[in-house]
């Protein structure tokens, strides 16, 4: 396997607080415009999802997701040293679950109150 390899610094931590679904995101950059810490930068390629540049400055406020008008385009991902211990137990069965587990239970689609 031949592959060109570059000198790059280690990935920042958290690695990737904001994940884009390129098939839903249309690169409108609304999230870029409102991110308080400029975590996100417009992609040099028009129409593509933004680049996550300052991952280490993400406040995990979720405003980019709230601002986005294409549901599912952006996912907020908590740092692993935080999310790894977000766990819950089903009262009736005693079964344990974890945020990020390999085979998660079915999503609960009940929206928040508004």
């Amino acid at each position: 396997m031949t592959q060109k390899v570059y000198m790059t610094p280690n990935p920042p931590t958290p690695n990737n607080p904001i994940e884009y679904n390129a098939s839903i995101c249309n690169g409108c950059n609304r999230c870029v415009q409102i991110c308080r810490t400029d975590v996100l930068m417009p992609n040099p390629e028009k129409g593509q999802p933004p680049l996550v540049l300052y991952a280490d400055e993400c406040w995990h406020c979720g405003c980019c997701v709230q601002e986005c008008n294409r549901p599912g385009a952006i996912k907020l991902v908590h740092p692993l040293n935080q999310s790894v211990v977000v766990t819950w137990k089903r009262r009736a069965t005693g079964k344990h679950y974890r945020l990020g587990m390999k085979l998660p239970p079915r999503a609960n689609n009940k929206p928040p109150s508004e």
Partner: peptide, 13 residues
């Protein structure tokens, strides 16, 4: 709203 409610419910909580 996103960081907790959305993340937990989508994960099945």
């Amino acid at each position: 709203r996103i960081a907790v409610y959305d993340a937990l419910t989508k994960a099945g909580f």
